[in-house]
C-alpha cells in the first residue's frame, strides 16, 4: 500500500512536532516524493544526522513501500 503525502507528514511530525513540512509528489505515483523540512531540532546537526532523523521517522517504509524520498532539511 503506497504512502500518501499526508502519511509522510504525519510520520515526520511524530519525530519533529515543530517541523514545517512541504511535500512534493514528484511523479504523481505516491512513490517519489521530495520533502522540504524545517525544524529547530536540526540546529547544529550535520546533514547526515538531519536526514537520519527523517529516515528514522519513515522507518521500514524507506526503500520498500516508499521508493524514493528526496530530502531538503533546514535549521530553523
Amino acid at each position: 500500500m503506497k504512502l500518501s503525502s499526508e502519511d509522510i507528514v504525519e510520520m515526520i511530525k511524530k519525530k519533529l512536532p515543530d517541523a514545517k513540512i512541504h511535500i512534493e509528489d514528484l511523479r504523481g505515483d505516491n512513490d517519489h516524493y521530495h520533502a522540504t523540512i524545517e525544524s529547530k531540532k536540526f540546529k547544529g546537526l550535520s546533514k547526515v544526522q538531519q536526514h537520519k532523523i527523517v529516515y528514522d521517522a519513515i522507518g521500514h517504509h524507506m526503500g520498500t513501500t516508499l521508493h524514493a524520498l528526496m530530502l531538503t532539511t533546514k535549521e530553523q
Binding site: K47, V48, H51, M70, L71, T72
Partner: peptide, 11 residues
C-alpha cells in the same frame, strides 16, 4: 567517512 547519498552530494 560516510558523506551521504544523492541529496546531500547534490546540495
Amino acid at each position: 567517512e560516510f558523506i551521504g547519498g544523492c541529496d546531500i552530494l547534490r546540495e
